[in-house]
Computed example of a mutant assay.
Amino acid sequence: MSGKDGINVKDLLIGGLIGGIVGSVTALLLAPKSGKELRGDLNEHVDVMKEKGAQWKDVAYEKGIEIGNVAKDKKDAIIDSTSGFVEVVRDKSGQLYDTVSKQAKSVKETAVAGTEATKEAAKKAAETFKSEAKDTEKELKDAADKTKEEVKDASKTAKDKTEKIVDDAKKELKK
């Protein structure tokens, strides 16, 4: 557990443990019992506190594993969606390169045929290239927006689960 929430839970655990010990010892010392009974009660309370501490440790360990698994799953999902984005960019770049190559060849052949024809072909190639670039830009933007949403959703899910785990741990501490 790290960050502000982790420190609060840790402080709460330590405070609860120390408060419980101090309260138990105070209650036992102020109670009118014989020394033998008092030692027996003290030993019994120490055993109970040890048992509770072990239970809290187990709960904290389990919650840590859960958080780690959620983070790993979300990381894998983000990597998968990002590699899909990279493939889209790679494909569109290849298509754009092919289109530009074809248009350049067409422009070169037209230049041989005449100056006027060359101007017309260059204009057409520029329009096609511009249109392809706009289409590619839109597709790239859509893919980036989708990836951004997936990352946002993954972060929210991880945050929600972490908050639930912290709440569960707080409830366990209150018991």
Rank of each mutant, 00 (worst) to 15 (best):
G15H: 09
L28S: 07
D5S: 07
S2W: 06
G19S: 15
K10S: 13
L29Y: 02
V25H: 02
A31Q: 11
G3N: 07
S24D: 15
N8W: 02
G16R: 12
G15K: 15
A31I: 00
L12Y: 06
G20Q: 09
V25K: 03
S2N: 12
K4Q: 05
G3H: 05
L29Q: 03
V22P: 01
G20L: 06
G16K: 14
G6C: 08
G15R: 15
G6A: 12
S2P: 05
I7E: 08
L30S: 14
D5L: 07
S2F: 12
L30H: 06
G20K: 12
L12H: 03
D11H: 03
A27Y: 03
T26H: 07
L29G: 01
I7F: 03
S2H: 11
G16S: 11
G20T: 10
G15P: 00
D5Q: 08
L17S: 12
L30K: 15
V25N: 01
N8P: 00
A31D: 13
G23N: 13
I21H: 10
L29N: 06
G16V: 02
G19D: 14
K10M: 14
D11S: 07
G20C: 05
L13C: 05
G15M: 11
N8F: 09
L13F: 08
P32W: 01
G6T: 04
L17W: 02
G3S: 04
L12M: 07
I14R: 13
S24N: 15
D5E: 12
L17M: 11
V22M: 08
K10Q: 13
D5W: 03
G23Q: 09
L12T: 08
S2Q: 12
D11W: 04
I21Y: 09
G3T: 02
P32S: 15
I7K: 12
V22L: 14
K10P: 00
K10N: 09
T26Q: 09
G20P: 02
L13S: 03
